Computed example of a mutant assay.
Amino acid sequence: MSIILIGFMGAGKSTVAKLLSDDFIDLDKMIEQQIEMPISTFFDLFGEDDFRQVEQEVFEAAIHMNFVIATGGGIVENAGNLDVLGFQTQVVYLKSDFDVLWQRILKDDKNQRPLAKNKEFARKLFEKRAPVYEEVADLVIVVDNKQPDKIVQEIRDWQGNL
């Protein structure tokens, strides 16, 4: 069964996934391979609705691979994805304060985030998504001021108790 990491942009999903397993999927990278362009370019050309459809198709395929999956922050924006998450038993929400996340987003030069160009818009997205992350999560880990290896250990300890 897949371990699925969810949370807002900048929560550390990809970093934690890499540490949890060599067999991990960064869903955003998998999507970029399928669409053959950066997600930000796809957003500009086709919009968020088309992106969410592609994301759902790639996510549904990834679930069957039984790997650790680092999702994009907007995975909860699509009802189909919520259905898939609802059937999973190892959904881990990496939870953080918005201001901490915003600082991480600003410092991240590697990832272009099409929905994080404006702090207030990003804050509204965060406030909309946070309760949904909580609802679908089987485990919630507050990641503020925690090193990635500590987060990984919490996930492993939790898995040992399943």
Rank of each mutant, 00 (worst) to 15 (best):
M1N: 06
S2L: 04
I4A: 09
I4W: 02
I4C: 06
I6K: 00
I6G: 06
G10L: 06
A11W: 00
S14G: 09
T15N: 03
A17Q: 02
A17P: 09
A17T: 05
K18Y: 01
K18T: 03
K18A: 13
L20A: 03
S21H: 01
I25H: 03
D26I: 11
D28Y: 01
K29R: 14
M30S: 14
M30W: 09
I31H: 04
I31C: 00
E32M: 08
E32D: 05
Q33I: 12
Q33K: 13
Q34C: 08
Q34Y: 10
I39C: 01
S40V: 14
T41W: 02
T41F: 01
G47K: 06
G47V: 08
E48M: 03
E48S: 04
D49N: 08
D50C: 10
F51L: 06
R52F: 07
Q56I: 02
Q56S: 12
Q56T: 10
V58P: 00
V58D: 01
F59I: 06
A61K: 11
A61H: 09
A62P: 03
I63E: 05
I63V: 13
N66D: 13
G72P: 00
G73R: 02
I75P: 04
I75D: 00
V76S: 07
E77C: 13
N78K: 10
N78V: 06
N78Q: 07
N78M: 02
A79E: 12
G80D: 07
L82C: 15
D83G: 13
V84I: 15
V84M: 07
V84Y: 03
L85W: 04
G86K: 10
F87E: 11
T89S: 13
T89F: 06
Q90D: 14
V92Y: 00
Y93L: 09
S96R: 12
S96D: 04
D97G: 04
V100G: 03
W102L: 10
R104K: 11
R104C: 00
R104Q: 05
L106W: 07
L106Q: 14
L106F: 03
D108P: 11
D108V: 10
D109L: 12
K110T: 14
K110N: 12
R113M: 03
P114R: 05
L115E: 02
A116V: 12
N118L: 07
E120Y: 08
R123H: 10
R123Y: 12
L125A: 09
L125V: 13
L125M: 12
F126N: 05
K128R: 12
R129F: 08
R129K: 09
E134R: 14
E134D: 15
E135K: 15
A137C: 10
A137F: 08
D138H: 15
L139S: 07
V140E: 10
I141S: 02
V143H: 00
D144S: 07
D144E: 09
N145E: 14
K146P: 04
K146W: 00
K146Q: 15
Q147L: 15
D149Y: 06
D149R: 11
D149T: 15
Q153W: 06
E154F: 00
I155H: 03
I155N: 01
I155P: 03
I155T: 07
D157M: 06
Q159I: 11
L162G: 11
L162V: 12
L162D: 05
